[in-house]
Amino acid sequence: MTDLLAGPDAATEAVRTAVIEAAIALFREQPLHHVALDEVAAAAGISTAELTAIHPTVDDLVIAVIRAWNQRRTAPLMPIAEGHGAVAFLRAIVLANAADPALMRLLTSAATIAATPTLPQAEQLQASWIHFHAIVQRALTQDVAVGREPATMEPARGAEQLIALYEGLQLQSMVRPHMDVVEAYDRAVTRLRDGWSRDYPPSVWEI
């Protein structure tokens, strides 16, 4: 009886996994707005109706794919944040993205969904970016505690700056394909950390 009850759930999970894998394969080859639900369904070996019962829209599918794909990329790198700090953690992500840039392309495309408050999926995607900021902030807090980063750096602000540097350079590398994004990250983060070591004097910029 237990096996019979578990069967449908196991089958549903297998379908969900097949859909995610099919979508990842398609997003590796095509931009977000070129991938249609019927194409994903065909690649997963199910009907479009079966797919839309799980993910009614492409945006819903994108959220599921980002969660699964991002977890697959980031989870193995978390020990780096704990053992070597936030800067090393972000550098490891830059290296992972350089080796497999498709996820970063999808995240960049999905940012337009997250930035559109009228879309029902916006809040869920925003939560992913907020969570990422929290991870980096937590790592920077630990960095300060163990002396890897200076006490003059406020972790919440440092996380904003480090993520902006990381995401900005990633975006540049996508539109300037000959750019060495790892070298650019190393150079920029060295300058950023130098600034962290100084007291921050608030100022008003006048033009």
Rank of each mutant, 00 (worst) to 15 (best):
P79I: 12
R105W: 05
M174L: 15
P101H: 13
I135L: 14
E39A: 15
R176G: 03
I63M: 08
L140T: 03
I113M: 02
A92I: 09
T12L: 15
P101M: 11
H34W: 05
W69I: 01
I207S: 05
L77K: 13
I63G: 00
S173C: 09
V15I: 15
R67K: 07
L26W: 03
Y185M: 14
T2I: 14
S203M: 10
L162M: 15
F132M: 08
P117F: 10
R198D: 05
T17H: 11
I113D: 00
G158K: 14
T74S: 09
T116M: 08
A151D: 11
D143N: 04
A99H: 14
F132V: 04
E50T: 14
P177F: 11
S128N: 07
I113C: 01
P202D: 03
V144E: 02
G158F: 13
P31N: 06
D100N: 13
T74N: 09
S47R: 08
E82M: 11
T108C: 06
L5Q: 14
I24Y: 00
P117G: 06
A99P: 07
V65W: 03
L192M: 14
Y185P: 09
V65N: 00
R105G: 05
D143M: 08
D59H: 14
I207H: 10
F27P: 02
A98S: 12
L4E: 10
W205Y: 13
